[in-house]
């Protein structure tokens, strides 16, 4: 087991190191002179240019610049935003809870509907319910979520006036962020109606972000369930005369869940990519929207730090999924 974890870790470290190099390189490939971008001056005098280049370390050899960049990262220095003049890490940590909260509720939505959809489809294999549910999953899987978000706003917010269109909570409420999770902070604040308001702001974005994971989970649950239902131990359990619910819930479902848990874990990438679109549509103040704004504001340090942080989180999540997978499924552990 330890060897397996060690091997996975050994693969992760070079990936994160390469990510650092990639983000370092990307910013140097961006069109426009970095000094000009940072100072906003054109036709700058050669002396001032040299001074700026020296201040930014751009007169150093590239390998030295990279070494400085990495040692900065190791000390938590992800650069300074050109727009807000705040440290990039601080901005990221302020915004990340919003993304995490959204991703959490999206996952809850996807799991709550995805697993029952998959189980029912497998039990009614080939029937109308199976075709119907898998049809829904196919549409979910193929959904342009940015359009899906607009449609839901059109229907639930504009036509029915049921849900708010944007933001995390109604402007009526104000409290200092404690955890950064609006639902939790609203509960802590004790203000009446604050929690309900935070929750109602979460519904549509969570549904939009959770749609593709829901479809992936439903499809995986169905195929995994179909496989397990054919196993001898399920037939034995049935032959023993156990009630069908017990056979399905206890004997079949528990084993069918192994690949499903992996699929849920691997939705991290889908959620982070989807967050960029979902947050843009719902004006959700998370890291996805921040990243897009950084591009349009040419705030390259923010973009560089943001991409590195988001990708590192994804790498670590996938590492976690692999390790959990190795723990619950010995075949994975010994397979490689």
């Amino acid at each position: 087991m330890l060897t397996y974890i060690g091997r996975r870790l050994a693969l992760t470290i070079p990936t994160i190191f390469a990510l650092m190099f990639l983000t370092f390189l990307a910013v140097r490939l961006v069109p426009g002179d970095p000094v000009e971008v940072r100072t906003g001056e054109r036709g700058i005098s050669p002396e001032r240019l040299a001074q700026f280049r020296h201040e930014l370390g751009l007169d150093q050899p590239v390998w030295k610049q990279f070494a400085d960049y990495v040692s900065g990262l190791a000390q938590g220095d992800f650069g300074i935003s050109l727009v807000t003049k705040e440290p990039v890490l601080k901005e990221f940590l302020t915004l990340f809870p919003a993304t995490l909260e959204l991703a959490f509720f999206a996952t809850v939505f996807a799991v709550t509907f995805g697993i029952p959809f998959g189980v029912v489809a497998a039990l009614r294999r080939g029937g109308i319910l199976d075709h119907g549910l898998m049809g829904v999953a196919l549409f979910g899987y193929s959904m342009p979520i940015f359009w899906w978000g607009l449609l839901l706003i059109l229907f639930f917010s504009v036509q029915l006036d049921l849900t708010p269109v944007s933001g995390r909570i109604d402007l009526l409420y104000y409290f200092e962020p404690v955890t950064g999770f609006m639902t939790i902070d609203a509960l802590i604040s004790g203000q009446e109606g604050a929690f309900a308001s935070a929750l109602s702001h979460l519904v549509l974005p969570a549904v939009v972000l959770g749609t593709i994971p829901l479809a992936a989970i439903a499809r995986m649950t169905r195929s995994s369930m179909l496989e397990v239902l054919e196993e001898d131990y399920v037939r034995t359990a049935r032959a023993k005369g156990l009630p069908p619910l017990r056979v399905i819930g206890l004997h079949a479902l528990r084993n069918a869940m192994i690949p499903v848990v992996t699929v849920i874990g691997l939705q991290g990438g889908t959620l982070l990519a989807g967050a960029v679109l979902t947050e843009t549509i719902f004006a959700w103040p998370g890291v996805g929207k921040w990243l897009i704004e950084s591009i349009f504001r040419r705030d390259y340090p923010a973009l560089q730090g943001g991409v590195l942080l988001i990708s590192s989180i994804l790498v670590l999540v996938n590492l976690g999924v692999d390790i959990v997978n190795g723990v619950i499924n010995p075949r994975v552990r010994h397979g490689r």
């Binding site: 990936t15 390469a18 990510l19 990639l22 990307a26 990438g269 889908t270 982070l272 990519a273 989807g274 960029v276 679109l277 990243l291 897009i292 591009i295 973009l303 991409v307 988001i310 990708s311 994804l314 790498v315 996938n318």
Partner: peptide, 13 residues
């Protein structure tokens, strides 16, 4: 390395 960056994030970069 390519797969370690979320797809849309890499595309926008």
């Amino acid at each position: 390395l390519i797969m370690s960056v979320p797809s849309l994030v890499l595309a926008i970069v």
